[in-house]
Amino acid sequence: MRPAIFILLFSLLQPVLGETQRAEQLYTSQGCAACHQINQPVDPNKVMVGPPLAAVGSRYADDPKGLETILTSLRQGGGGKWGQNEMPPQSHLTKEHSGQLARWIFTLRQEDGAGDNNKATQDPPKTVTHSPLIGEKRLGTVVQVTDTPLVYRTYLPGVSARAIAVGLPAKMGGISYAFSAAGCRLLYVWRGGFLDMEKAWTGHGGWYAGIIGERFYHAPAGFPLRIGNAFDREENPQLEFKGYRLVEGQPRFLYEVDGRPVSQEMRYDASSKTLTLHFTTSNITEPIRFLVPSDRQTGYASKDAERHPGHLLVHPDKNSRFSIQVPIQIRLQP
């Protein structure tokens, strides 16, 4: 142990009147309570966000480096000691507060009957295969697509709070994608799985869903459609999300562009690795353009539109229904 840490620990061990009460207040005010109970039996059949703090104290009770371990976990984050969740570094804590909390946690002990049986949480979760009615498989909190598409609204990494995850069965291409309801557009595509809802569903809930698999396509920034000749490439038109209709299980997204109703569907063909966006509009006589990023021009294709630098111009007689093929390159893992 380096002297600096030794001195720090030594100073931490000095008793201070009322520190327990202060630490309990910190436990609430600094957000610990969002993930940790103070004293609660560890239930092997239940997913926990973080371990009860009394279980942490009990585990390190006889460990001469116990206090240091707890302090390090608070400062630098922790993981792998208790179930699958990682604790982020609690960098919002001052040195004084993290010391108070660490020392308090170190003194906590589990009540009778609440033994450290955490090892049981390493057991694989029980498979809950729902009735065929459900159309999905939930392995613990992992949601898998079976033979019908899934549409889940949840927080997704890299999407606005108004996010929609879509998972397609193998016969429909087997990919998953993220759609932003705020931006009315596709954001990215992944494959290899759908979602882990653990942090969205368990504990307090409401965290981001985890994406299972590998993201292999990110759409260019910005909303791609422009209506009329006076268009601005950089500025999105006025967009209003209106919901979605399930068509053979896949979502047809409904939104308004400058007050004009537009619907959009996406289809993926796994054999040709082609993603096609299908748009429908009504009563639009002005030109409709689909913007194409200058560095990716070549891959875009449409038999309903004419290629121009920076955009595809929809043929006027195709305004009410047109399709755009989007180039997707899948980088295979070496």
Binding site: A181, H204, R245
Partner: peptide, 15 residues
Amino acid sequence: LYQTITDGFSMIASF
């Protein structure tokens, strides 16, 4: 049909 009636309030992705 999952029809949006209103989303006239702001959101961040907070738990």
